[in-house]
């Protein structure tokens, strides 16, 4: 069954406290050289039918309206699992 992957990241200009905490842990454990860490989300949507244009449009809408909140996050990538242009 095809799987569509949606990647969501906190907006670049906003503080990412989770990423900041991980960056602190890396520094404390001797892993130098990382200027920052940012944590996002990956959604895997498994579909039970073909990935057609209607489904693509639907996924685009879901990604923008439900999987992300445009006030605080950006949808950075949608991978439909084929060679088609990505969002």
């Amino acid at each position: 069954m095809p799987t569509i992957v949606v990647d969501v990241m906190p907006k670049a200009e906003l503080l990412d406290p989770q990423g900041k905490a991980v960056a602190g842990a890396l520094a404390r454990t001797g892993h130098a050289g990382f200027a920052s860490v940012r944590i996002g989300k990956r959604f895997e949507l498994t579909v039970d039918g073909p990935v057609d244009d209607a489904l693509r449009a639907n996924v685009q809408q879901i990604a923008e309206e439900i999987l992300s909140n445009s006030v605080i996050e950006d949808v950075v990538n949608i991978d439909f699992g084929d060679e088609s242009p990505e969002a």
């Binding site: 906190p10 906003l14 503080l15 406290p17 989770q18 900041k20 905490a21 909140n69 006030v71 605080i72």
Partner: peptide, 9 residues
């Protein structure tokens, strides 16, 4: 607007 994790974590 929106609400995000406290800045101090």
């Amino acid at each position: 607007g929106g609400l995000i994790r406290n800045d101090h974590g």
